[in-house]
Design a protein around this nucleic acid. Structure first.
Lengths: 211, 211, 211, 211
DNA sequence: AATGAATGAGTGTTCATTCAT
DNA sequence: TATGAATGAACACTCATTCAT
């Protein structure tokens, strides 16, 4: 109740507080519909302060993407590389990790990138290069190893990464888009288990081959 | 003086020309970033004329959704109901139909609805009620029949519709969002075949599963 | 009292009405201190209308310069070229013409360009190329002819144009800057006659000088 | 810990350092376009410090005028009063002094006062009363003495001061406005000599008297 | 039915000014 | 004395919407 002095309060936390507020609003309303004023209020500051840390709304957008996605991606990649078990287990592990990451984060960058890519071509290219393609490569790597070990049957490695990750990503996007309309909230982790089960049955070499 | 009277030209076609133009622009740039002026120009009329047929930008949005999505959905439902073969074939048939519909349409309403749902809650609810839920019901119906016929194994009918349709919808969204960045364009129909193959292997009752 | 319909009223006159209003305000308050809103109100329209005709404040500025200065300059040049009498009379004639032009125009572009050149380098260069240098060349031409005819004594042709025109320009700037503080308004035409008299006495070849 | 304490460094010099920085920036960019931040940085302090010494941007402006112009004017007046030679020589001396002062100072207060007078009526009045009118009186005094001594011919004493000083002042203003566009920089002192020569020839009583 | 000139509320951005330290 | 984080009023510019023709 007795306020801490405003201008000294966590001055290094400011940028990330603003990024957090921006993430919430961007994913709720999209980029254009989000007003800097709202971001500022949500972050507990005023408009001018936002511009103290980010030179433009677009720069704020980029910061949000960079701060919130790249670290997650790197973590996932590393985990996959260090995973020692079967490739099926590895794939399951990675998908679970993705679901967990998406579930814990209460924003949806992928939704944001879908909504605004057309208006920010440069940012879209950045996202594609830095996030999407590396993620596809990681999945493809696991699948390819699995085929080599005869865990997985032969398959089209070109298209498979999209097929593998789409259900989880779309579920997360839907959650943030229509979730409030559902009678009961979508349980992302549970959903992921089902998707993993169906997927692995679809990918594994014949049961006969397995044992 | 000798001009062919422009305003005699297919008076009744005006609204749908405007809707078509709006669809293109909405899916390219999103709702907020699309200007009425642009829609007008793309439709070959002037701004005032748009307001002659649609009382507001939001009303235009709704008209786009209603005109372009509901008919497709109804068609799909009917086809599914009349399909006589195995439920696996029926599921494949329906998914192929969706992919075809999405492939032929050079806009992406689903992308649009993801991007703008937050700003148009009423529209989101409408879309959810009229499009998403019916689609899920239709898929669930096929799966449920398949289980009853012991074509499919037991499964979670709550979550499965999302898992089934996610890859195709995501690929279509991708096409309209990042497609221009890809070396070669995503072949939606071919992609759908692969997804159907993996999915059915994952869903079918195997001898082992059945026991 | 009964207003003429607003949107049809002199639609072609709009741009020049806006330019006129902008000229007044720019020279009264400078570029930065002039608000588009003020220009609009002074022109009897609203802000949006200004942007209907000029894409930016800077573009409006350029239009003001182009519309109000270049025509005057061209007129002066032509008059000087056609003037048949002595070069002293010609010089007097040109200076009187300048004074007249500045006197009749109730703005002062030269003041404007001095005040804002630093912030609009491109515009300054344009003004220098299109207005200042041509004016200097015209003066230099007259002086040089006068020297050839032995009307004028030998002199430094490089610097002379500035010396010749400075008093009239400065007086005009003065009038628009501090004039309201003077007990009696500066009579530009009368002032010009005195300046012409002093100048010609200073330039003419005297019998002694000629010898 | 071992830093030389910055704030001990010439405490009293702060205001004049700030004034100096402000002078530079005001004449380069005008009043409105100059930001307090820039002034602060140029003076080697921070924004807050500027407000420690000057309660507002306008007050800083006034301080600049007072500190930098009034002393020069007083010096000129005194020199003129003590000058013992002919009034022609005295006039030449005073004009040379002005040119020198303007030449040495790399700002142009007169330009500043032209650009911003409209926005600061009170300051304009102050400048007119304290600078312009005294300067005119000083010139008028010299001319009047010269006429009494029959060095100068009869003339209009009302307008003459402007005519006398305009070329030098305008040249200085131009130098600071368009100078960077010229192939070779304007040599103000050399220019002044030419102007003095033309002027005196224009003002002196008959040539016969001269020798 | 169609136009397009005009509007004005709204938003991104700037910057003089304040104040707790 | 000096800082610099924070403020908020102000302004350029946009664009959905209106309306006289």
């Amino acid at each position: 109740m007795s306020e801490a002095p405003r201008n000294l309060r966590r001055k290094e936390a400011r940028p990330s507080e603003i990024i957090e507020a921006a993430l919430q609003l961007f994913h709720q309303k999209g980029f254009s519909a989000t007003k800097i004023d709202e971001v500022a209020i949500a972050a507990g500051v005023t408009k001018g302060t936002v511009y103290l840390y980010f030179p433009s709304k677009e720069a704020l957008f980029k910061a949000v993407v960079q701060e919130r996605v790249l670290p997650n991606l790197a973590k996932m990649n590393e985990a996959a590389n260090q995973f020692a078990g079967s490739r099926a287990d590895c794939l399951a592990y990675v998908l679970r990790g993705m679901a967990q990451a998406l579930n814990e984060c209460n924003g949806s960058i992928s939704k944001l990138m879908i909504a605004e890519a057309g208006n920010f071509p440069e940012l879209a290219a950045f996202y594609n290069d830095e996030v999407v393609q590396p993620m596809h490569r990681a999945i493809r790597q696991i699948l390819s190893e699995g085929i080599a070990r005869q865990e997985f049957r032969e398959m089209d490695l070109e298209h498979m990464p999209r097929i593998v990750i789409a259900p989880i990503f779309m579920a997360n996007i839907w959650r943030h888009t229509y979730g409030h309309l559902d009678a009961q909230p979508l349980e992302l982790m549970q959903y992921a288990e089902i998707q993993i089960d169906v997927l692995l049955r679809g990918l594994l070499a014949t049961p006969e081959n397995k044992q």
